[in-house]
């Protein structure tokens, strides 16, 4: 059994999005319940949210944006940049603890304290742009983790694999000029789903050309199409890139019972995807993989999906 870390903190529940919003604290409660009720907690290294130096966030987000978010919270604003981004006065602190917790999690892997980890965090991150909050996301957790791994630990090639059903526009834009971070995303086709980016011809820019890869999937598709496309697109890309570390933007919203998308994956397919991620980590990155929660809104399905996900990490 692997030494798997679980980043979870009750303080992640304090980010309140109001009564009409799908990105609720119940999502995280459901995720935690799935792990707890399966009796997995004793096997996991529990990691809590942590306030880390702002300099790490500044490697991704503009300092003015960070201050603007903090001010909005202090002023008691309940919406930030777009009506999608509902917030409360705890939102900034929650986002800081979440992204700091993710940094601490990847640090522990580099320090050899744990082998891999799942970060059950909110708010999610992959839509967050350098200077703009989008799609319920404030700090781009996965991007900050990638920059931290590069700057503090000299990791040279990082793969970010994003299987949330929505394209991770923020992550793509942060790294699209960069040949040291490979961004792969599979998601519902942008003509049918938020945020409208992630078409197959978006392949990175200048030195980063060839280091962004998008697989848009048409509505109504399911397991077979996803498996075929991941094998067709992602596996050869990783063969060429040979990442030293895998960061996974994990979204469970492509599930057939999740009403945020038109993609119909089974619970089993999510296990297949995570097993495929694990195999890639073992093959190229010495098993170093951190999965970070993005979307997934079916409170009924999240416990089992997250339990399966964590079991795959424990198995290694």
């Amino acid at each position: 059994m692997k030494r798997t870390g679980l980043l979870y903190d009750d303080r992640f529940l304090l980010h309140d999005t109001g009564p009409m919003h799908p990105e609720t604290s119940d999502r995280l409660r459901a995720a935690y319940k799935g792990i707890e009720e399966a009796g997995l907690l004793p096997n996991l290294t529990l990691i809590q949210g942590k306030r880390m130096s702002q300099k790490y966030i500044e490697q991704v987000h503009h300092v003015n944006y960070i201050m603007r978010l903090e001010e909005a919270c202090l002023m008691g604003m309940c919406e930030f940049d777009y009506p999608d981004n509902q917030m409360c006065c705890e939102t900034y602190d929650t986002a800081v603890l979440a992204v700091g917790g993710v940094i601490d999690t990847v640090r522990r892997i580099m320090a050899g304290e744990i082998d891999n980890a799942f970060c059950a965090v909110r708010p999610p991150g992959h839509h967050a742009e350098i200077s703009k909050a989008m799609g319920f996301c404030y700090f781009n957790n996965v991007a900050v983790a990638a920059r931290y791994l590069q700057d503090e630990w000299g990791v040279s090639r990082i793969a970010i694999i994003d299987f949330d059903v929505h394209h991770g526009n923020g992550t793509q834009h942060i790294f699209e000029y960069d040949s040291t971070v490979f961004y792969y995303s599979i998601h519902e086709h942008p003509s049918f789903a938020f945020p409208g980016t992630g078409r197959e011809f978006e392949e990175g820019i200048d030195a980063g050309h060839g280091y962004t890869l998008n697989t848009p999937v048409l509505p109504g598709q399911g397991d077979q199409e996803y498996k075929m496309l991941i094998e067709r697109d992602l596996l050869p890309a990783m063969e060429r890139f040979e990442p030293d570390f895998l960061l996974v933007s994990t979204g469970f919203d492509a599930h057939k019972d999740d009403d945020m998308s038109g993609i119909n994956l089974s619970t089993e397919c999510f296990s297949w995807i995570m097993e495929t991620m694990m195999a890639l980590a073992n093959k190229y990155a010495g098993g170093r993989i951190v999965s970070i929660l993005e979307g997934g809104y079916s409170i009924q399905r999240l416990p089992e999906l997250v339990k399966n996900h964590v079991e795959i990490l424990l198995k290694g």
């Binding site: 009409m20 919003h21 799908p22 999608d84 839509h127 799609g135 319920f136 929505h166 049918f192 938020f194 945020p195 048409l218 509505p219 109504g220 009403d259 945020m260 038109g262 809104y297």
Partner: peptide, 20 residues
Amino acid sequence: NNVARIKKKLVDMGFTLIDP
């Protein structure tokens, strides 16, 4: 990004959502 509620509401109002 938050379309689940409005989709349900439109269906409840008697509209048909067209298969994309």
